[in-house]
């Protein structure tokens, strides 16, 4: 086991990928608790599709993927938030609309420029090789910002997640904090997207939260537990992906599924014993 890990981490690209991946899974898990409880689970999914579109455009323009993706995905996150708050198009329909549109635009841009090749497959399902050195530095910096903001706004995020109307009525600037949640989610999605794949990245926000909600009873414990679950699942997923040469994103999701089932079974057993 130790030998295997030493062998893995003798590859610099794997070290980079694991460092960024661990940070992204941590951020995603923390935000995911709020997203799932606010019924915004599909937001991550919608944003990752927007991310796919922007990756395609960035590649076509020969630009750095992160610098193109981040502003556009953040803008899309604010747009989704506004639409779900005020418009006659309901949130879930708005997300479906935006995500399929960006997917379509991305596919057309790709087929007009590079053509449909393995790149497309990598965008959709992720690649561990996606991280360059400069990407890693930017990713670590951004992930640190996301973590810091989350910790700083933890209490506000709880207040707007549990009861937005009450928070607003007692003078909490709920609009601002919703925007912060959307902003942090957008950054996290973009950072994790190329490694996990745009079709799979939203699982990082949803699974750990749902998994820890099976067992935990407090918001704080749910948050802490999902952070641990997410980081551990990511690590196991990467090792499995290395050993069996399976795609990284999909392997991480499979480990998350197993964790979810384990927690669910634990909860059922505890319930039985109590009765």
């Amino acid at each position: 086991m130790i030998d295997l890990l030493l062998e893995m981490f003798s590859y610099m690209f794997l070290v980079r990928a694991v460092v960024v991946g661990l940070l992204v899974s941590l951020c995603a898990a923390l935000l995911g608790v709020s997203l799932v409880l606010k019924r915004y689970s599909m937001m991550g999914d919608g944003l990752s599709h927007v991310g796919f579109g922007t990756l395609a455009i960035a590649t076509a323009m020969n630009a750095a993927p992160l610098t193109v993706s981040i502003p556009i995905v953040v803008a899309a996150a604010f747009l989704l938030l506004r639409i779900s708050e005020n418009s006659k198009i309901k949130g879930d329909a708005a997300i479906a609309l935006i995500s399929t549109s960006s997917l379509a635009i991305g596919v057309v841009v790709i087929s007009l420029t590079t053509g449909m090749n393995t790149d497309v497959c990598n965008y959709l399902f992720g690649s561990i090789l996606a991280m360059s050195k400069s990407d890693v530095n930017l990713s670590i910096a951004l992930a640190a910002v996301v973590l810091a903001l989350f910790l700083l706004f933890y209490n506000k995020i709880f207040a707007v997640t549990f009861d937005e109307n009450f928070a607003k009525a007692t003078g909490v600037k709920t609009g601002l904090y919703n925007m912060i949640i959307a902003f942090l989610t957008a950054i996290t999605i973009v950072l994790g997207m190329r490694m996990m794949g745009s079709l799979l990245i939203s699982s990082l926000t949803i699974f750990p939260a749902l998994t820890s909600m099976r067992v935990c009873k407090k918001f704080k414990t749910v948050t802490v537990c999902s952070a641990f679950v997410s980081v551990i699942c990511f690590f196991i997923g990467v090792v499995i992906s290395y050993v069996y040469a399976t795609p990284t994103g999909a392997s991480v999701v499979i480990v998350n599924i197993v964790a979810f089932l384990l927690f669910w079974a634990t909860n059922l057993t505890i319930g039985r014993i109590k009765k």
């Binding site: 019924r39 549990f162 928070a167 009873k217 407090k218 918001f219 704080k220 749910v222």
Partner: peptide, 21 residues
């Protein structure tokens, strides 16, 4: 959404102080 919200009573009550913060 609140009916299945994982939070302790203390966390919920404490969030009432947020506006004054």
């Amino acid at each position: 959404a609140q009916k299945d919200f994982p939070a302790s009573a203390h966390e919920v009550v404490l969030s009432g102080r947020m506006g004054a913060r």
